[in-house]
């Protein structure tokens, strides 16, 4: 019912509220598409480079998130 009331590009996509972290992947993809279009010297392996950068940034942010959880949950109580 909530989805029927949704107007694309005008109203918020509230159905993603609980899984907002999934939206990190298209965000890094968009940044990689624009950045690699400027950065690579040849466009021959462009999409491979985009995929690589998307993966690297996503994995990097997830790793930082895990490190932060470990720090807050386990290291801070010890200190």
């Amino acid at each position: 019912m909530q989805l029927i009331a949704w107007i694309p590009f005008a109203g918020p996509l509230n159905s993603m509220q609980s899984i907002w972290y999934v939206l990190l992947v298209p965000l890094t993809f968009g940044i990689a598409v624009a950045y690699k279009a400027m950065r690579v010297s040849s466009l021959e392996n462009y999409w491979r480079q985009v995929l690589l950068m998307t993966t690297q940034v996503t994995v990097g942010i997830v790793a930082l998130g895990i490190l932060l959880i470990l720090f807050v949950k386990y290291l801070v109580p010890i200190l």
């Binding site: 005008a10 109203g11 996509l13 298209p26 598409v33 624009a34």
Partner: peptide, 25 residues
């Protein structure tokens, strides 16, 4: 030209993606 259209796709993807997720607000 090709670089320009790829950049256009990337930036507009982020812009309209943001509007799609959060709405005009």
């Amino acid at each position: 030209t090709r670089r320009g259209f790829l950049m256009m796709f990337g930036i507009l993807f982020l812009f309209f993606g943001g509007l799609l997720i959060g709405g005009i607000d």
